[in-house]
Nucleic acid binder design. Structure first.
Ligand SMILES: [Zn+2]
Ligand SMILES: [Zn+2]
Ligand SMILES: [Zn+2]
Ligand SMILES: [Zn+2]
Lengths: 152, 152
DNA sequence: CTCTAATTGATACTTGATATCAATAAATGT
DNA sequence: ACATTTATTGATATCAAGTATCAATTAGAG
């Protein structure tokens, strides 16, 4: 059930696919390899550009498998394409730098406690939640000349 | 500075536009009127369908103005077009029914307290946040035959 | 090595949204 | 009321993100 965990604590992406009964192919290895090489969150188009020899459809399909497997988090961005980041710990939330797009993770038990206390107040059954904190990251605070990494 | 407030506590949409120096036109009144008539969150395409005599560009432009004015909340949905809902109170978060798409609002001071306590932990300056709770709403719990309202 | 089912990727298409720009309508001043 | 100016409109073209199709290829089982 639980996917393989590598030293860093994050899920091994190829194994995550294999665990779902998917074949190990060159195209999928190219995609997972590239994602693991990246340290930051990325968009599907980023990957397509980085991997011109892998078809767009395959890039999108592989990302979808990884999200379904829980190995990638899909972060809806207010305008434009969603970003993806490797899910390094089990349950967490994200920080997103509004200047450079860098994505971080945080865990805070209080967030979950808030949910439990809201259960009374909310007119229905809670089935999930999402929280993002928008920040100006340390790097961007120190660099007045920062440019959006995700060039569009 | 603060936009006009009507009895219900929500912002009057036409006034919100006027407050931004925009002209009061028939097309804009049609859009704001329709939004106020709707009780639920909606997509841009919903409005276009409901208002065939208003050009798509105008519908999208008017929505953008209303979001900029803070009169509408834009809710990024994981797949597909964002939904919009009237901002009824100043600062709040949203519940989204995963079955029917109904959007609600909630306020909880603990959420804001969590943020303050995270300030130490987060590597940068917090500039904003977003939280959504996914629910099965009361109506959907009682109705096994519920159909997604947002037909696609 | 063979066979079968899964996978790939070029292409066409869909959807959501924006840019263009001539025609129209709102505000302003006379 | 009328002329002038400027904002607005909306048909159309275009863009962007992502999916469907499907013949050709390839992985994995036997
Ligand atoms: Zn994550
Ligand atoms: Zn940054
Ligand atoms: Zn519901
Ligand atoms: Zn809040």
């Amino acid at each position: 059930m639980a996917a393989s965990i590598v030293e860093s604590g994050s899920i091994d992406l190829s194994n995550a696919l294999e665990d779902r009964g998917l074949r190990r192919t060159a195209a999928r290895s190219a995609v997972t390899g590239r994602i693991e090489q990246l340290n930051d969150a990325f968009t599907a188009e980023n990957l397509c550009r980085d991997l011109p020899d892998v078809g767009r459809a395959t890039v999108y399909r592989t990302i979808r498998h990884l999200v379904d497997a829980g190995a990638l988090c899909k972060l809806p961005i207010l305008d434009g394409a969603p970003m993806y980041s490797i899910a390094r710990v089990d349950h967490h939330h994200h920080t997103i730098c509004v200047r450079c797009g860098a994505v971080g993770e945080f865990r805070h038990s209080t967030v979950e406690r808030v949910l439990r206390s809201l259960e009374k107040e909310i007119d229905g059954d809670i089935v999930g939640h999402r929280m993002e904190i928008f920040i100006t990251c340390r790097a961007c605070l120190g660099d007045q000349h920062a440019i959006k990494k995700t060039s569009r």
